[in-house]
Amino acid sequence: MSTEVAAPSHTVPLERTWWERNGRSAVVWTARTVLIVALLAAWEWSAERLFDLTFTSRPSDILTRLVEWNADGTLWIHTWITLQEVLLGFGLGAVTGVLAGFALASLPLVYRVLEPFIMALYAIPKVALAPLFIIWFGIGLSMKVLLAAATVFFLVFLNTAAGVREVDRQLVDAVRLMGGGRREIALKVVLPASMTGVLTGLKVAIPYALIGAVIGELVASNRGLGYLINDAAAQFDTAGVFATLVVLSVIAAILNLGVSMIDRRVGRWKPLEARR
């Protein structure tokens, strides 16, 4: 029985030029750079000529504002506050979401009873909870953390539960045939099989942690990037608003980088079914 067992996949060395190997991504990155530079240049040029500077500001002003804020520390104080809220909110929501997901999905009857209520809570726009959270927790850090956690929790919970509930019955039977009991089924099948669901939940929840925290700050706060936007806008400081948005998008980009790293981790193995 050896016809099929050739060398572990047949590989041949290829002579590829730098262009063949990297051409495509070089084009993409060049296009991206050209696009952003062109946009900024157009904005800078048109700002005073076509639009009122009070409304649109301009890239050079925004840069100046960022440099100022960097120098006097404003930028870092507020960024750090927001980051703390995001991380704490994400951590809290993720841990409780995973735990609740595993617990409830292993109790199918309880899950069925609770499902409509959970879905109803999930559907509430989380901003609507902000006033309630302010009454309960004040306008400090904890209210933003909880607002971020509220969204993260549901996303992680629902994906984890789906992951647990969709475990292939046949894999469970395979472990039973090996003489495994409930413990082995839980540890050797359900846990690894639901990992895809858990990681998907964590992945989609990351941006929502940022959204939750910033919304909390916009609603009521005296610190953080959301507050900085509100404060700048109240003074008609458009450059300040844009500068804060730049910082927020940098944070979002970094978080997305984390997402794609998780993605690669998940892609290592995919259940056989997913590939059919």
Binding site: D168, A174, G179, K188, V189, P192, M195, K270, L272
Partner: peptide, 19 residues
Amino acid sequence: TGPTTEIGYLTQSDTLMPW
């Protein structure tokens, strides 16, 4: 009354753990 390790069972579909 339940599965035993004395009996090995090769089912129709593959049940290797994908991870």
